[in-house]
Amino acid sequence: MAKTPLQFRHNGRDVAIFVDGGTNLLVALRELIGDMTPKFGCGQGGCGTCSVLIDGELHLSCLTLAETVAGRSVETLDGLKEGPNLHPLQRAFADNFAAQCGYCTPGMLMAAKALLDRNPQPSRAEVVEAISGNICRCTGYEPIINAVLAAASGGRARA
């Protein structure tokens, strides 16, 4: 079966690939573009580690038909760094021990970015809501919530 050409913006760069019909965006990013920052956890929408931003909105790449992002902008953790510097969220995650095994971290960071882009000063409850589609099996969430709040307040680590 013929493959379909697909063009979209990936972390600010235009990319063009050929996809099989039915390919999800996670597979397209990882296997065709080589961006390994979105992770495969479940392929069922349940874990959130594949989260990416599509035109600035949080989406699950495993449940996104690749062809639907034609002409749109896709942001992944790979594009979060600001040049050589860590993004404030990355800095805050590191300072607050918000990652243990790190497998949920790409999705957590994208969910947190989606929140702060819209709401730079969220309440704790809003942070909890924003990461409610993301599962972390290690940290117990508290360090992640604290990291997002720390990044929002522009502050460094809270002890």
Partner: peptide, 14 residues
Amino acid sequence: DMLGHVTGTSPYFD
């Protein structure tokens, strides 16, 4: 391993 985790560059099995 923290820098790798927050930049998504830590390698996993998958």
